[in-house]
Write a protein that binds this DNA or RNA. Structure first.
Lengths: 199, 199
DNA sequence: CCAAGCGGAGAACGTGCGTTCTCTGCCAGA
DNA sequence: TCTGGCAGAGAACGCACGTTCTCCGCTTGG
């Protein structure tokens, strides 16, 4: 049974094309050609372009967070894990087809017209924030630090996309290190945890 | 002669519509209706939609930076000026038709297809970075602080757009305050003079 | 070997939109 | 007043694209 296979091929094609060129710039014909799934079958699986777009975003949301989580989990200390987020961003920005955050892009393109798209983007960013907040809590830093780190990460994505450089990830990591250190100092962290407590 | 007037009306309509709904979502007919400029005249002024889009972006670039500059200049001390950037963002985010950074949005929508759009977005972000760098230099902080503050500002724009809240501007300002304080402490602000000591 | 239906390939249809064209009325100058 | 052209309003054109339809070959059960 290749029904599953066809759906996966469509989603894979959609992700590459929608992310790489923008959603409105990609026609269903391009999806068909790239996935080698006939239009009839394509419309059996996804009854409209809108539904395919939503599926694309949901899939990307899940993959993005799981890849980030996997990378971060390979680090040991809570502090390292917080900073690993920015190392992962650096890697991502260096991928040749990096073109910014797919959710910010989709929101900018369709968010004003499509409530589902806006909602998925919002949910994705909220999930990311929660994930960072957990890392921050594990590193025994105040919860507002998570907001600051998220802003740095989001800014790095946009800036890296437009400038075409991965450097913003490094800059964001530097800033994150300073904020993390300062936050814990002000917070009066009882547990040094790494012995990396200065000042 | 109302030739000038027609052009201004077209640009005003284009800014509201393109920014508010996305570029591809707005047809030339909508521009015509909103500006009350007949299509014939419209195409005399802007020979194609692409050229109108570019004019829209260039005008928005100039206005955005000049409004920011005006607000910031109304503050006295160099430190206040640096932080005033985030107050201005807060005001902007609270405007009812705020929908994120028009350049990030345009880049996400068209940057992959249109080199001019990508170039204008890049130039805009570079100009913003230079502006912040000047403020940072005046506040006698190390130049890398400008990169950090720009990331916070960009992140605040995206996050405010997607969440629909102006709160990110406040969070970014808090983070900026910490980074500014820390940067000057580490930098040893003993010599006010130029503050141009690197790394 | 036959018939019935399923899946693939792409043509066809309707709509929206960027751009151009046509028609109509108005005003300048003789 | 007459005429020549200009500007406005919107129809028309061509194309792209989302969605549906048609045709055809293959398979599968009798």
């Amino acid at each position: 049974m290749e029904g599953e296979d066809a759906e996966q091929r469509v989603l894979a094609a959609a992700e590459v094309l929608f992310y790489g060129q923008g959603i409105q710039a990609v026609g269903m014909d391009a999806i068909r050609t790239a996935s080698a799934v006939p239009l009839k079958r394509l419309y059996q699986i996804f009854p409209s372009k809108d539904s395919l777009v939503e599926a694309y975003l949901r899939r990307r949301d899940a993959r993005w967070l799981s890849e980030l989580g996997e990378y971060v989990a390979s680090h040991d200390s809570p502090t390292q894990r917080v900073l690993a987020v920015f190392d992962w961003l650096f890697q991502w920005f260096n991928e040749p087809d990096f073109r910014g955050c797919g959710f910010i892009n989709s929101y900018g393109e369709l968010g004003a017209r499509s409530q589902p798209v806006a909602e998925i983007a919002r949910a994705h960013k909220q999930a990311f924030r929660h994930y960072v907040a957990d890392l921050v809590a594990a590193a025994e830093a105040p919860s507002w630090l998570a907001d600051h780190l998220v802003l740095l990460a989001e800014g790095a994505m946009s800036t890296a996309a437009i400038t075409g450089s991965a450097e913003p990830a490094r800059q964001a990591k530097d800033a994150a290190r300073i904020l993390l250190r300062t936050a814990r100092a002000e917070f009066g962290t009882a547990q040094p945890d790494q012995g990396s407590r200065e000042k």
